[in-house]
Amino acid sequence: MDDDRLVIAGEELGSRLIMGTGGAPSMSVLRAALAASGTALTTVAMRRVDPSARGSVLDVLSECGIRVLPNTAGCFTAGEAVLTAKLAREALGTSWVKLEVIADERTLLPDPIELVEAAEQLVADGFVVLPYTNDDPVLARRLEQIGCAAVMPLGSPIGSGLGIRNPHNIELIVERAGVPVILDAGLGTASDAALAMELGCDAVLLATAVTRARHPERMAAAMRHAVEAGRLARLAGRIPKRRYAQASSPFEGLATS
């Protein structure tokens, strides 16, 4: 089991649970939740932090030894997203970016056309691009072909807690992907995270399910275990489903033994 490692753009990450920070009620709660999640990589909305400010979420991450993944949350055009990514690279010294280009505020669904445009520009500029995308196998493949380092299909809309609405599409994405698939957005509880991993995703990214839970620290621990359990189940291989029962201990020889 020890050789089961998550590698993105040639870099190994110590956890398959990637966390977001949005919605945390306080820095103390966020810190405790991140520690309980065991995460090694956490996204921060660059439009909502000042990298030079003290006591910010970036300070919390650096004190916890968690790598920062800047994201372009709040951008509606490729132009804004590219600019935000560049500012993040300058401020944080990382070329990794979670690329988010949102189509509208009500659904927060990705705008696929702007997303592809922004991804092309950022890849050409040397970024390690992790795009937040629809659960569309064709779009996921296109993003990979452009040169994205991973693809991050949604389970359902951001913050909705609706879980994975189209598991079949996620399976199709996983089947064809040559880069890591990270299930991003919509997870509500631990079983959703476990399902993502059982479907073959390489990692899970979540925020709201933890930060807006009644007990964020507990939910973070639950997610950590769920991701580990789901990954193990995927590697172990589930049994085929049968129509009728099959006794787990053999009947043969019972009478004579």
Binding site: R48, V49, D50, S52, A53, S56, V57
Partner: peptide
Amino acid sequence: EVVVGATQEELGFD
């Protein structure tokens, strides 16, 4: 007077 508020932004001393 009607006061409408408020944003909540983590942007340092801005």
